[in-house]
Nucleic acid binder design. Structure first.
Length: 303
RNA sequence: GGAGGGGUGGGUGAGAGGCUAAUACCAACAGACUGUAAAUCUGUCGCCUGAAAUGGCUACGCAGGUUCGAAUCCUGCCCCCUCCA
């Protein structure tokens, strides 16, 4: 059986198109690792593969929930794992492709996510507490029951303090539940490019999203009743265009903001995918990369 | 030609004699991350040295001056903007 082939790296380096070509020649299917392409109707802003591309090669973990539904790392992990196993059972090669570092590593490293589902009532209560008494109040509470977790999270990160408290409520400290044990063997390919080039690629892509109708896409989401306060609408592009539609910014400002925020996102992605990480086999995103990557990947594929 | 306003670190823009290598925001750079993750949070950000504390150097258009001390006050020059002719 073929190894799971992961294709990672920052946005706009051509992961999807590389994956598409490799799948066609190596009899593969794509399991997306993109925290935004899971939402239906969010196509342009998430640079989702087109219907033609999805018809050419089977894609999984795309369009799995509506924009007003909850989605989470745990949901991603179990569904993606299921998809990978499904592809392999069919005797094909699974390609895990995407830029969401958390999702990628949770799958590749086999994180055993604490089986404590979100408790909305508790979260609301703690959020209110943080609002009135300040984040420190929650932090102190966490420090008492799980000092190790508190130490790592810090006073200010209310969202993560709340999740830690939520997990601790079940009895075992959060910090003791963070176990890694791989589910599948894998090979990781990374696509990278120079900072300047990366920013240029991003800017070009954002401009093309605008031309393809990003504004209309956000308008139609709002018209369907998906409010701008939904987590799904906090993604790059949607958030800024949302502000424009509310009259809070001009369109050119919003577009520029998307570019800047996407630069920042790409930088953030390098925190998950480090150039010095020995597990990742890096390729420069440029002419001829597909051939080189193909030659590399082929060794791990059994047909 | 006349009258006003203004030139501050990569950008916007505060500061109106010492507390200022200079608020804030943006950009940029680095980092954390186990059920919201394209989220949330942290650090750096004039130059040299250093792990850091420190130390040294150069800085608020340019050139002088006043002062123990100037981005801040004075003089001259250059440039920009607005209004009047």
């Amino acid at each position: 059986m073929s190894l799971l082939i992961a294709i990672v790296g920052p946005t706009a380096t051509g992961k999807s198109s590389l994956a598409l070509e490799l799948c066609q020649t190596l009899n593969g299917e794509i399991v997306s690792a993109d925290s935004r392409q899971v939402y239906r109707y969010m196509d342009i802003g998430t640079a989702k593969p087109t219907v033609e591309e999805q018809a050419a090669v089977p894609h999984h973990l795309i369009d799995v929930v509506n924009p007003d539904e909850d989605f989470s790392l745990a949901m991603y992990q179990s569904r993606a794992l299921e998809a990978v196993h499904g592809v392999q059972r069919r005797g094909k090669t699974a390609f895990l492709v995407g830029g969401s570092g958390l999702y990628i590593w949770a799958l590749l490293e086999g994180w055993r996510i604490p089986p404590v589902p979100p408790d909305p009532a508790l979260r609301r209560e703690l959020e209110a507490k943080a609002q009135f008494e300040g984040g420190e109040a929650l932090y102190e509470k966490l420090k008492e029951i799980d000092p190790a977790a508190a130490e790592r999270i810090g006073t200010k990160n209310v969202r993560r303090v709340i999740r830690a408290l939520e997990v601790c409520q079940q009895g075992t400290p959060f910090s003791e539940l963070q176990v890694k044990k791989p589910f599948v063997d894998s090979v990781i390919v990374g696509l990278t490019t120079d900072r300047d080039d990366l920013y240029k690629r991003i800017d070009t892509r954002v401009d093309s999203m605008r031309k393809k109708g990003l504004v209309a896409e956000v308008e139609s989401l709002v018209a369907r009743g998906y409010g701008l306060d939904l987590p799904s609408m906090s993604g790059l592009g949607y958030k800024q265009i949302g502000l424009y539609l509310q009259g809070k910014t001009a369109l050119p400002t919003a577009i520029q903001q998307i570019k800047f925020d996407t630069h920042s996102f790409a930088r953030h992605q390098y925190n998950w995918f480090r150039l010095k990480d020995k597990r990742i086999n890096w390729f420069k995103a440029e002419e001829g990369t597909t051939e080189a990557a193909h030659r590399f990947v082929q060794r791990f594929v059994v047909n």
